[in-house]
Design a protein around this nucleic acid. Structure first.
Lengths: 231, 231, 231, 231
DNA sequence: CATGAATGAGCATTCATTCAT
DNA sequence: GATGAATGAATGCTCATTCAT
């Protein structure tokens, strides 16, 4: 599923080939720039990286938030893909499905801009819808697993989402490889923590609706540390 | 241990009372501003929150990085405190010590600015030293736990630090209470994942030196999402 | 020769008409502002005088030094013009050529920002090159004059350049007219001092290279007196 | 004659020893700072160079202009000294006296802050008075020289003052030694230009009153070139 | 459609000056 | 008398955004 070029139902009347290419390049540049510099990254820096003029960027995305929104939607689409794949194999191997799901996100970390909880926010109904679908698919996986006694009964889809949100954020100052190792270890331990026969009790999970309801307007998030000197 | 007012060994010849108060207020304001707006938060916003003039802020901290550095050092100091406390009870109850350590960080999340891996970086030797001490204390706890077979043998101090780094970052767009619940659940599952009799194998952990060596110059980090419109 | 719009060999791909006009206005404003307020003149003051926004100024000249450099280059171009004119008539009337050269600079004083020695510095290779050409042209004039016994044999091009540098700097606190009279008298006496049959011996002149070699990094220069109150 | 500690007639009730030392250090620091950075040099930079606190500087000199004024007065006093010395030997050797006068100023260039025309302005009556005395002494030298036919008849005291003003300004970007050589050569040629049997006619000189009358409020002067980057 | 150019507004930083110790 | 500290006000510079080509 191509994330950034939503199906024909879109209002967009189908772009000219070069315009579509520019749009894709802007999104790609935004993705990396947002991860490296934060979502406050200068828009002309993004335009430069995309090899287009700043005005071209503005033609496609009326403001920063529109750009962020699209990047996030693209991220959600990737996650939804993974979640659906997991749902498909849930019947036969729910634990393996879970593991594959989490690790595929870790692998795609670099192209995901903080999707899910913790990411930049949009009150876009599409985003809401995608989140709902993601939660549903994961819940499906979990109930299959619970039915087999493969996971602790108190784990919820929101826990998987939280984990994804935490581990997909950039770990700056660490080389790619090392960051990947550390995060993979973390996910491994987390997955082991999903086994049944738990020793400890978790606080009650919020429902998906409780979480989603806050995804709309929301307060800003954290920012980049300016390793050496911000500007 | 008072973090922001290091003992007399400091070069600073002891501040006048009012100056010290101002300095502390600036640091407190910076802490929250950094969490809410990112480390690129406007410095005059920080000064305003602290109730001092921007020039006063500059008198204490010659530039943004100096301010970040101090905030991070303070964060490290808090973590070191917690780690040492854990080390003290490690003999009698290593698992409890671990749990208390992790949860105390979650509780203090709000006053910690991305300490440890993933936080804003400083090549300050003090920061290095604190990190080293933190790692040492945690290793002490872990070896006590391993000796009793209370934890899986392949877990390392760096895993605890990674986890702390991940869960201490702000989860914007979520109300405090909910964020706390989600993170606490995550930590709970993670802790359960530390039990022995593991089902899965973790990739080899990097040594503390490998991780620390990258804490110096480092590339920038992630950034704020600009919920509505950044500027 | 149009000083500020170097021929097509320039990298600049030819400015749009309005942009070129703005650029010229900025340079003109800078010229007078630098003379009146020093090269530390507020850049927004310059922008205001030029009737453009400060950001427009920055678009053309990335920083103060770039602006200074261009103003100086323009000054050098004017001087080179004069020197070449002098060289052309040197054969027939070397003394007259010298006099015309010096007085033309005095006349253009107002549009020259400390060109030559003593002016703001640039390590721009173009500047170096212009200086070299100026020195060469003047040397040509002088050798023609020396050949006829029209000037003392120990005078060098560097002396003419020094004199130009000295007399082209603003004499603040004096009305234009009076400053012009005083400087013209000074130049007149200086020119008379160039006659042969000298009574006194001059210290050995540095070579042009010796002088030029110091034009690169260089320490700052003198500054404005702040007639009433600088700020 | 000690310039910066004017005779007892001063209003200042005689400073305590350490205060007097501080005052002298501030003036010395101001002298060099003004030459290096312009008269807009940061006052706290001057205080730092003087080794005193900025508030101490303010205690002695209520504002920048007061400091400038004193520095200029000191400069005038040095010039007056030299002019009087010249007047004393004018009877026996007027030309030598002139030469010695000019060269002594060149030698003291470094400690003179733009004295005379072209320097920072003061409406201080003391400054006026000093200038008058300087002009008188120089006129005395010149008339002795004219009487002997040792100089052209059309040279006036104002020409000497103009020349002094021109050559005493810093020539930045040139090493001390080279600047000295160039300026000395210039003065040498100028002095040779003072001989009688002139070939050219000078424009009529303004009277000393005409010149002095403009020394009061006056527009600002030129400024420092910011060799590399102003700030 | 794409771009060069212009603008206004924000933020960092510095400095003169005053105040309290 | 001297100093550390605080402040307000400039100024430099950058960026989002709009306009004209």
């Amino acid at each position: 599923m191509t994330a950034s070029t939503p199906p024909g139902k879109s209002l967009r009347p189908r772009l000219r080939a070069d315009a579509a290419r520019n749009r894709a390049q802007v999104l790609a540049a935004a993705r990396t720039a947002f991860r490296e510099l934060g979502t406050a990254a200068p828009l002309d820096e993004i335009a430069r990286r995309a090899g287009v003029n700043i005005a071209t960027l503005y033609r496609r995305f009326p403001d920063r938030d529109a750009l962020i929104a699209q990047v996030v939607l693209d991220g959600f689409a990737v996650v939804l893909d993974a979640a659906r794949t997991a749902a498909q194999t849930a019947r036969t191997d729910p634990l393996g499905a879970l593991e594959t799901f989490m690790l595929s996100l870790v692998d795609n970390r670099e192209t995901l801009v903080l999707p899910l909880i913790g990411g930049p926010v949009t009150n876009d109904p599409q985003a809401r819808d995608l989140q709902r679908q993601i939660a549903a698919a994961l819940e499906e996986v979990l109930s299959a697993a619970r039915a087999r006694g493969a996971v602790r009964p108190d784990v919820a889809a929101v826990d998987l989402i939280t984990t994804a949100a935490l581990v997909c954020r950039p770990l700056p100052h660490l080389p790619q490889q090392q960051a990947a190792t550390l995060v993979t270890r973390h996910v491994g331990i987390f997955l082991d923590g999903l086994r049944p026969n738990t020793t400890r009790q978790l606080p009650t999970a919020p429902t998906h609706e409780e979480v989603a309801v806050h995804l709309a307007p929301g307060p800003p998030e954290e920012a980049p540390p300016s390793a050496a000197s911000d500007r």
